[in-house]
Design a binder for these strands. Structure first.
Length: 266
DNA sequence: CGGCCATCCTGCACGC
DNA sequence: TGCGTGCAGGATGGCC
């Protein structure tokens, strides 16, 4: 499923392909994918000005207002007509189209007059300029929550998904059931560093690959091979060879090394 | 407030 | 081979 780096790659592709296009028609193939209420008039005959990313949301800004897209698990945006699972289509006056393809139908497209307001509940961007180690330490101290569900909470920190949280906690030596306010300063700094490097390395890896903008189905090549705990249940830890453990935490599959990652409770 | 649960969906891995 | 079952997951909202 698309994590933040995949969404960033999609956004960069869209900047090259749909900016400047004028929407001539909005076609909804799956009602829940786009609540149309007043959207039709707000969207048709509008021109795409910019494409931005906020966390895992894609913001397609129009003359006024914006289309906000979340790909969730299986969503893709592609200029090539996919034979199946098309939930929304934007047709352009140029004759081109943009297809929202989503096999599992979790993805959503929304029209909003004010995207910044719509997304104002989100926490800081992990790669943003304000997300310093000092700030992060304060954020962790201010909560008394299990670290894994906390990192997945988009109002706390925006853009991390299940896979990258498991990887970041492994790199920082923190057991996922640790309490946020009990994490030592050193581990908090490692976690901060791990979050940023995992995201940045993954973005860089995709940026160096030739990809069309329909990319985003899976973790591709480079980064897939770099996963150290996710999906490696019962396989030996790459550091200590102890079997990787998998538990359920906050409804999510959670992978960690019981010996390399310490459980901080107070 | 924090944690847990169900919900939405369908492809896919697995077992018989 | 083919079928049935269960799992996967991001975000939201309800409940205790």
């Amino acid at each position: 499923m698309p994590e933040l780096p995949e969404v960033e790659t999609v956004v960069r592709g869209l900047r090259n392909t749909i900016v400047g296009e004028t929407i001539s028609e909005l076609e909804v193939g799956w009602d829940k994918a786009f609540e149309t209420d007043d959207a039709y008039d707000a969207v048709v005959n509008k021109t795409i000005k910019t494409v931005d990313r906020r966390a895992k949301y894609i913001i397609i800004r129009l003359d006024t207002g914006a289309l906000v897209v979340h790909l969730r698990m299986t969503g893709k945006l592609t200029p090539v007509y996919p034979e199946k699972h098309v939930t929304v289509t934007l047709h352009f006056t140029s004759g081109k189209s943009l297809y929202f393809q989503d096999a599992r139908k979790f993805g959503r497209m929304t029209y909003t007059p004010d995207p910044d307001d719509m997304l104002s509940h989100l926490g800081p961007e992990p790669l943003g300029p304000d997300f310093s180690v000092a700030i992060f330490r304060k954020m962790l101290k201010s909560k008394k929550r299990l670290i894994k569900p906390l990192l997945l909470d988009q109002t706390f920190l925006a853009g991390l998904g299940n896979i990258y949280v498991d990887e970041a906690l492994f790199q920082a030596g923190i057991q996922p059931e640790s309490l946020s306010n009990a994490i030592p300063a050193k581990n908090a700094a490692w976690l901060h560093s791990a979050i940023q490097s995992i995201l940045q390395n993954s973005i860089d890896a995709q940026g160096t690959t030739v990809l069309n903008f329909s990319h985003g189905d899976n973790l591709t090549g480079t980064y897939q091979a770099a996963l150290q705990v996710y999906g490696r249940s019962k396989e030996p830890c790459l550091i200590c060879e102890h079997p990787i453990k998998k538990i359920k935490l906050g409804q999510r599959g959670t992978h960690f090394c019981p010996t390399c990652q310490k459980k901080f409770l107070r």
